[in-house]
Amino acid sequence: MFKSGSAPLARPAILPDTSNRSGLPAFASVGDVLRAYEGDDAIFVLYPKKIAAAARTFLNGFPGKVLYAVKANPHPAVLKTLWTSGVRNFDVASTREVDLVQSVVPGAKLFFMHPVKSRAAIRHAYECGVRDFSFDSADELQKMLEVTGYASDLTLHLRVALPKGGAAMPLSGKFGADRDQAVELLGEARRHAFKLGVTFHVGSQCLEISDYDMALAYVRSIVDASGVEIDSIDCGGGFPVPYPGMSPRPMGEYFSAIRSSLSAHGFAGLQVLGEPGRALCAQGGSTLARVELRKGGDLYLNDGSYGSLFDAAQCAWKFPVKLHTVEPRDQGETEAFRFFGPTCDSLDVMNGPFELPADVQEGDWVEICHLGAYGQALSSRFNGFYSETTVAVMA
C-alpha cells in the first residue's frame, strides 16, 4: 500500500486480531502520507500527540477518575496512546471491548457501564475481573446478581434518565430509570452492592455547562428520597469539541463548574467518575478521502456515510475540512461543496456545505478533521468500500 522505503503497514481494523500490535506506520505530515501511498482506499489518520494532550487536560483538570469510553474509538493505537498518557480506567460496553482492552493494556481497570447486557457478557466480564456494572431496571439488577451468584464484591452504578438539556444528541430516550424507579432501585441495590453509585449522561456534545449542575441537583433529590447512602457519582460523558457551528466553552470551565456543583449538592466526599470519549480522541483523528469526480459543486469521494462520515450524513455535522494535493499548487478562493460517498446508495450524501478551495479536482485529497471519535469506529464494509489503512502523523 505504501511505496518502497516507507514504513511497513500494519493491518489495523476496528476490533483487530490483537496478536498483531506492532503499532502504526508513522509520518511527519499528511503530505508525506500521500506521497508514499499507493492504495485505492481512504486513509484513517491518527494524531497521537493531540490524543495525549487531550488526556492530560482531563487527567489534570477533571475532579475525579477519568474513564475512556472505548466506543468512541477502539483502535489499539488509541488505547495505547491513552494508557501511556496516564489513563488507567476504561468504560466498556461489550464482551469484545472487554477482551480488546485487556489484550492491549492488560493493567487497565474496566467499568462495564452499558445498562443492558446479556447474561453471557456479564459472566465473561466478571470472570475477567470486572466488578463495576451499570443497570437501569430491576430486571437488569436481578440478572447481574443471578449471573454472578449474588457476589459480595460488586460495585453497582444506577443509570438515571435526565430531563432534556442542551446537548446536540440527547441520550435519555433509550437508557435510564425515571425518578420513581430510581428511588426504588437504589434501595434494592443497596442491599446487595459492595459499593453503590449513581451515573447519568447529559447527552453527547453538551454545549450547556449548566446541564451538569441540573443533573447533579436531580440526582441529589433521588438519593435523598431513597434514604440510602451512595459511594460514587458518575458524571458520564458529553464533553464537547469545537465542530464548525458549535463553540463550546473551554474544558476547564466544565471542570470548575462540575467541581462546584458536586460540592453544592453534597457529593464532594464521594468518588467521582467521568466517561469522556469524544473529547479525548475526536481532534486526534481524521479521514483522508480522495476526490474521484467533480460535478460542479458536488465532490464524489472514496469514503462516505457508510464509512467514517456517518455523522456528517445522518446528523448533518459540518466537520472541518482541508484540501491536500500530491503536487503543490496555489489555492485561491474557496467554494461550498457537497460530498457524495462511493457506494451505490443515494443516501450516501453529506450536504455540508464544506468550504474548500474552488479549484479542487479529481485526484485531490480532502482531509475531514475531528473524526477521531465515531468516524472509523462506525465504518462498515457496505458495497465493498472500506479501508484497512491507518497511519500516525506525528504533528
Rank of each mutant, 00 (worst) to 15 (best):
D32C: 06
L110W: 05
A69C: 06
L356K: 11
A336G: 13
V147P: 13
S261D: 00
N20V: 12
F44R: 05
A120T: 05
D180Q: 13
A289M: 15
L262Q: 02
A36S: 15
V78W: 07
L216D: 08
Y254G: 01
G129F: 09
V70E: 05
P16H: 08
F385V: 07
F175M: 05
H157D: 05
G341K: 11
A55I: 02
S226V: 08
T343Q: 06
S19A: 14
T81Y: 01
Y254H: 00
H157T: 06
A268Y: 03
R191Y: 06
P63H: 01
G129P: 09
D136M: 04
L100V: 10
P342L: 04
V291E: 13
H370Q: 14
A167L: 00
S103P: 09
R123V: 02
G237T: 08
A77V: 02
S261Y: 01
A108R: 00
G176D: 06
L82M: 10
T199C: 13
N351A: 13
A151R: 07
N60P: 01
M394A: 10
L100S: 08
V228E: 07
S210P: 01
D178C: 13
L82V: 12
A289R: 02
D213Y: 03
P328N: 11
P342D: 01
C235T: 13
R329N: 11
L207S: 00
Y386W: 15
V33N: 07
G269D: 15
P163S: 10
V33Q: 04
S379F: 02
V101W: 08
D364F: 13
S134A: 15
V202N: 11
I258T: 04
W365M: 08
F58N: 02
F175T: 04
D303A: 15
F385Y: 14
E253S: 08
A217V: 02
R290W: 00
E229V: 12
V349D: 01
P25M: 06
G274A: 05
N302Y: 12
G236I: 07
Y374K: 09
L185A: 10
A69G: 05
A395D: 15
E229Y: 05
P250T: 03
F58E: 01
A7Y: 02
S221R: 14
R96M: 11
G5R: 13
P115A: 08
K80T: 08
V30F: 03
D303K: 03
V393D: 08
L323E: 13
S256P: 02
K174N: 05
E38N: 11
P328D: 14
L196T: 11
E253T: 00
P276Q: 12
S85A: 15
M246W: 14
Y212F: 15
E275F: 04
V198R: 06
P242D: 03
V92A: 09
E97T: 09
T18A: 08
G187E: 06
G284M: 00
L301W: 04
F135T: 08
F133S: 06
Y212T: 02
Q331T: 13
R35N: 14
L323N: 03
V101Q: 10
T390Q: 12
A217R: 15
